[in-house]
Amino acid sequence: MSYNVLFLCTGNSARSIMAEALLGVLGKGRFIAYSAGSYPSGKVQPLAADLATKLGYPPDRLRSKSWDEYAAPGAPKMDFIITVCDNAAGEVCPIWPGQPVSAHWGVADPAAVVGSEDDRRAAFRDAFTILRRRVERLLALPIDKLDRLARERELHAIGATSE
Rank of each mutant, 00 (worst) to 15 (best):
P58D: 12
A89Q: 11
F31I: 10
F124V: 02
V101S: 08
R137D: 15
A150R: 14
P110L: 08
A33I: 04
M18T: 04
E20C: 03
S64Q: 08
A75F: 11
K28V: 11
R132Y: 03
E136A: 09
D60F: 12
R132N: 10
V92Y: 08
A19I: 04
A111S: 14
N12W: 05
A127S: 15
S16M: 03
P73C: 09
C93D: 10
Y34N: 05
T129F: 13
C93P: 01
P97F: 03
E154I: 05
G106R: 09
V92K: 15
I95S: 12
D118L: 01
P142Y: 01
P100T: 09
D68A: 12
I95W: 11
L139C: 08
A157C: 07
M18K: 02
M18R: 00
K145G: 10
A48P: 03
A150I: 12
I143A: 07
S16T: 00
F128D: 03
E69G: 06
A122F: 06
V135I: 13
V25W: 01
N87C: 07
D126A: 15
A19L: 06
M1C: 11
D60S: 14
S2T: 15
H156E: 14
M78P: 00
E154N: 10
A111E: 05
L22E: 08
F80K: 04
E91H: 13
P73A: 13
I95Q: 14
R133N: 15
P73H: 09
L62F: 03
N87S: 14
E136Q: 15
L23P: 03
R120P: 00
R15N: 09
P40E: 13
L155Y: 04
A103T: 01
G42R: 04
N12R: 01
V25P: 09
I130S: 06
I130E: 12
P76A: 12
G24T: 05
L149M: 12
T161D: 14
D50A: 15
K28P: 01
H156K: 15
A111Q: 07
V44G: 06
D144V: 07
M18F: 00
F128C: 08
L51M: 05
A150D: 10
V135A: 10
I32H: 12
D86C: 06
Q99E: 15
I130M: 12
D68Q: 15
A140R: 07
Y57W: 14
K28S: 15
G56Y: 09
T83P: 09
S116A: 05
G24D: 03
N12A: 10
L155C: 07
Y70V: 11
R15F: 05
C85V: 08
A75I: 10
A71F: 02
K54S: 15
V44H: 05
K65H: 08
A157Q: 12
L47H: 09
R30D: 13
D144P: 01
S16C: 04
F31Q: 01
V84E: 07
S64A: 10
A89M: 13
S66L: 06
P110Q: 08
D60C: 05
A36L: 01
G106A: 13
V101N: 09
A14T: 01
S16D: 02
L55W: 09
K43W: 11
L55E: 11
A111T: 02
G159Y: 02
Y70A: 07
S66G: 04
V114C: 13
M78Q: 11
I81Q: 07
A103Y: 03
A75T: 07
L149V: 11
E69K: 05
F7H: 02
G56K: 12
W96V: 15
D86E: 15
N4K: 10
A52G: 12
